[in-house]
Amino acid sequence: MSDENIIARIRQGDESKLMAIYRAYRNDFIFWAMRHFSCNEEIAKDVFQVAITIFYENIMSGKLSKLSSSVKTYLFAIGKNKLHENQVARERDLKIQQFEQDKIKDGFQLENLEGETSEEKEGMYKMLEKALIELGEPCRTVLEMYYYQDLSIEELATKMDYKSTDSAKTQKYKCLTRLKKIFQESVLGIKNI
C-alpha cells in the first residue's frame, strides 16, 4: 500500500494503519534518536509516540493530505523537532537546578518560574476526563470525533448513523451543553470545598 493510500485510510478512520506504522518504524526511530540526541530509550520511545500522534492529528485536520517525502521521513522530521525541544528543555532544567542550588547556598529559595498554570490545566483536564465518563455514550464519542478527530458534521452524521446533518448538529450541541453542565458543577464543587 502506498504512503498516500495509507494517509487516506487513516483519514477515513482506520487506526490500525497508524498502529502498523508505529510498529514498523519504532525500532529505527529509537536507534536513530539515541545515536543523534544522546537520549535514553524511554525518551526516544515517548517522543516517537508524540510524533505519531502529531502525524495523526495533521492527517485528521487536513493539514497533511499529500506527502512530499515518505511517511518515515515525515515522522522522523517531527521527531527531530521534538527531540530538539526536549534537549533544550533538559539543558534549561539543568541550568535552573544549578541556579537553584546557588540560591539555596545563598539562603534563597527559587520561586516556581512556571507558575501554577500548567498544573492547573492538568487538573482541569483530569476533571474533564471524569466529566466525560459521567456524560457517557454516545456523547463522549460524538465529542471526541468532532473536537479531537476533526470530523465534519457530515462525517459525524455518517459515522454515527444520524438521519441528517441537522440531527447530528443538534446532537452535538446537546452533548456539549450537558458536558458543560457536568463540568461546571464539578469545578464549582471543588471551589466550594
Binding site: E15, M19, T53, Y125, L128, E144, Y147, Q149
Partner: peptide, 19 residues
C-alpha cells in the same frame, strides 16, 4: 476550556492506545 480540554483528552487517549 472544554474545547481545549477535549483536544487534550483525545490526545491522551491516542497516546495510551500507542502505549
Amino acid at each position: 476550556t472544554i474545547r481545549e480540554g477535549l483536544r487534550a483528552v483525545g490526545r491522551g487517549r491516542m497516546l495510551s492506545k500507542l502505549e
